[in-house]
Design a protein around this nucleic acid. Sequence first.
DNA 1: CTCAATTCACTACACATGTAGTGTTCTGCT
DNA 2: AGCAGAACACTACATGTGTAGTGAATTGAG
Lengths: 125, 125
Amino acid sequence: MPAPDISESEWILMEALWDSAPKTASELTRQLAPSTHWAENTVRTLLGRLVEKGALAVGENQSGTRTYQPAVSRETCVKSEGDSFLQRVFRGAAKPLLMHFAQGTKLSPEDVRELKKLLDQSLKS
Amino acid sequence: MPAPDISESEWILMEALWDSAPKTASELTRQLAPSTHWAENTVRTLLGRLVEKGALAVGENQSGTRTYQPAVSRETCVKSEGDSFLQRVFRGAAKPLLMHFAQGTKLSPEDVRELKKLLDQSLKS
DNA sequence: CTCAATTCACTACACATGTAGTGTTCTGCT
DNA sequence: AGCAGAACACTACATGTGTAGTGAATTGAG
């Protein structure tokens, strides 16, 4: 099961559902309206495409209305998008990527500690 | 001048040109053939689109054949792609992104030293 | 029971992308 | 001069994406 390809607009829906699911189409529409201004049919189209792609599973609530919930984990999708981004933009080299994003970011001392710890664990044996 | 949007196939051409430019369409075709197997017309179409987008500038070589060279720097494009990726997949939060890519990567001790130095410089004042 | 609101299935349509093919022009070689 | 091969302009066409509209089915409220 290769992780499905999720487009930009679709990510917005997925995020909302990873956040909490299941939800109905109209719930999602209402929830996202402030930021997206999407018509309900737009949301339904995107949901349909995500179901086709296997990214969402459908169910029903008590009232018999269709509900949607993620069928793939956020982790899986992040990994797949991340890998592809790493390849495309950094030719697969993680270090330049890390350098790029480490630069120009403001981090708290705890963040820095945490990241350093992770780096130590990535030491090539 | 917002950095142009560069698609996956287009990145491959841009990389070849950032690597060394200017080059003609057939030079690029020959150079990339082993990995891409693109017909020369495919390369020409992509080059044309990149010129339209303002990502490439055209010139001529001694024989009067058209040549192409980047009109935007790799840094600029990497930054723009990076920002959009950061937004889309990590909702703009750099730390989780760094954690994600720091995990699951093997780094040399020097890489780790270098990255730690960068992290120290990203300390929020 | 009836009508309006909700849900859904289908359809639409423009623009981006991947991947060429066709036809025309130019130019160096014989 | 005439032709083969390179270079270029234009066209093509399927699939993905953003963003809906239309019309049918269903259902709750009066």
